[in-house]
Simulated scan of single mutants.
Amino acid sequence: MHVSIFGSTVEIDESHIEEPPAVVREQVREYVRGTRRTFDLTVTRPEGVTGDVMATMTDIPYGETRTYGELAATLDTAPVAVGQACGRNPVPIVVPCHRVVGSDGGLRGYSGGDGVATKRRLLEFEQGTTQTRLSTES
Rank of each mutant, 00 (worst) to 15 (best):
Y68K: 11
V95D: 04
C86V: 06
V100T: 00
T77M: 12
V28D: 13
T77Y: 00
D40S: 11
P90Q: 10
T129C: 07
F125E: 08
F125H: 09
Q127E: 12
V91K: 04
V49A: 03
R121N: 09
P90D: 07
H98Y: 14
C97N: 11
T74P: 11
R29H: 12
R33W: 12
D40I: 10
D40E: 08
D40Y: 10
L122Q: 11
E64F: 01
F125V: 14
A81Q: 05
E26M: 00
G106F: 01
R120W: 06
P92S: 02
P21L: 02
G112F: 11
A85M: 03
A85T: 07
G109E: 10
G83R: 15
E64P: 13
L122G: 10
T42V: 08
N89H: 06
T74M: 03
Y110Q: 04
E30W: 08
A72H: 00
P20T: 11
V53H: 06
G109T: 13
R33H: 15
E30V: 02
E70V: 00
D104S: 15
C97E: 14
G128D: 06
R120D: 05
V116E: 12
T77A: 06
G109F: 08
V82G: 02
E30K: 09
R36A: 15
G87I: 00
E30S: 05
R121C: 07
C86I: 05
R99F: 04
V95H: 04
C97G: 15
G63V: 12
E26I: 00
P96D: 04
V53K: 04
V116Q: 01
Q127S: 04
V28S: 13
V24Q: 05
I93T: 01
R37N: 07
E26W: 00
Q127H: 10
P46Q: 08
I60F: 02
C97R: 04
A117Q: 15
S111T: 09
G115W: 07
R120H: 13
A73N: 14
R88V: 00
G106E: 12
V101W: 07
R25W: 06
V95S: 09
R121F: 14
V23H: 12
N89V: 03
E126G: 13
G63P: 15
V24D: 07
E18S: 15
R121Y: 05
V32E: 15
G128I: 02
T58R: 12
V53Q: 05
D40H: 14
A73T: 14
A117P: 07
L107S: 14
L123S: 12
T118W: 08
A22H: 06
L75E: 03
R37A: 08
E70F: 01
D114R: 05
T58H: 12
V91I: 01
N89Y: 15
T56M: 03
Y62I: 13
